[in-house]
Nucleic acid binder design. Structure first.
Lengths: 193, 193
DNA sequence: CCCATTCCTTAACATATGTTAATGCGCAGC
DNA sequence: GCTGCGCATTAACATATGTTAAGGAATGGG
């Protein structure tokens, strides 16, 4: 495959040797996925890690019909069931494309198998997890601290334009409120301005 | 220092060479901390990673006087400001001993400096982050999915005896409710049983 | 031993948010 | 160009939880 966004992204995270890059690219394949299709279904096993080149993906948890969106992925991010890949268990989370998307995917086991011959890839993996950890912690603190209105405004800043590409009930679920409540918030904001 | 709980814990996470263990132990020092003292204050920098040998520690976020307990640590866990250590920024989280506690601490930079000569320590670090990630994800899913009553019951199972060692407002904050609400839940449970 | 502090409980009240339901807009398929 | 479906909005209502306040048990210090 041709080195797309993923290579520049990985290189900006940690320095990689040429040999490691080549070996890694051998594992990669590009896939396209239509709107509303699933990368990973809840309860399903998958061998793949994913990198989003174009589009939007959501990750969510479904409990008795109620869905909770954990976060949205935009290009440059990794919509990957880390826990499932690490633990070997079926994924507790579902991953769904919200618009037609292009992704790079690669076998996680294959990737780990490269660590012995290319230690820089293990350092890369550690660095990625570190960065994800930081991101998640900041996110968690924000969500707990702010009220829904503030988090809605943050969402709009963090994902410019996304608001108009996906149904509002996905945003509401992400904010931890009902679509009705989000509608009330939007009405209040429109009036207050 | 004498190899205490931390060594058996680390060995159970990932296999370590003798040389690596010795080099690591050189970095370690044991500390005791009285009840209600802070390991790390919010807004403070710290060079240390911590491992809890005995006692209880909470990690919390404070926003304009409102405190949000993220989790509790019991022996065998790492009450460590990972994000602060990785990013070099002041810690957004506070770490406080809720009962008199014993910990092992070590310089995080010193630890990372060992990665070059002891790659197994880097693998260990990666493994620890992986396990923490899994734990956090399961925790997050539970907290979102369940109501406060269920989460309270889970808390009692997950931290046996802890309920009687710490004030209930810390538990309420952990559950995301007010102490009054927790009191109502407890009253209902006592009656319903 | 007593007092003060801390913290849990209970009640009365206020309020934000969920629930149910009806309305209407806009897009897609026929 | 209709027609139907999916989705957002709005209103009326129900309810859970926060707020304020008061009282009482337990604990620790003088």
């Amino acid at each position: 495959m041709e080195p797309a966004l993923i290579i520049t992204t990985l290189n900006s995270i940690a320095p990689l040797e040429q040999g490691a890059i080549a070996a890694f690219l051998d594992l990669c394949e590009e896939i396209s996925i239509p709107r509303n299709e699933y990368l990973v279904r809840q309860g399903e096993r998958t061998p793949y890690a994913y990198f989003l080149e174009e589009g939007v993906v959501r990750v969510f948890f479904n409990n008795e019909g109620n869905e909770y969106n954990k976060t949205f992925f935009v290009p440059g991010m990794f919509p990957t069931p880390i826990t499932a890949l690490i633990s070997g268990e079926p994924s507790q989370l579902g991953f769904q494309a919200l618009v037609a998307s292009k992704l790079t995917r690669f076998s996680y086991q294959g990737f780990r198998a490269l660590f012995k011959s290319h230690p820089c890839l293990e350092s890369l993996m550690l660095r990625i997890l570190e960065l994800e950890w930081i991101k998640k912690e900041r996110h968690d603190i924000r969500m707990v601290t702010n009220d829904a209105t503030t988090n809605y405004l943050v969402f709009r800043k963090e994902y410019p334009g996304l608001e108009n590409q996906i149904p509002q009930y996905h945003i509401a679920s992400y904010l931890g409120i009902t679509p009705i409540q989000l509608s009330r918030i939007r009405a209040r904001l429109a009036k207050g301005q």
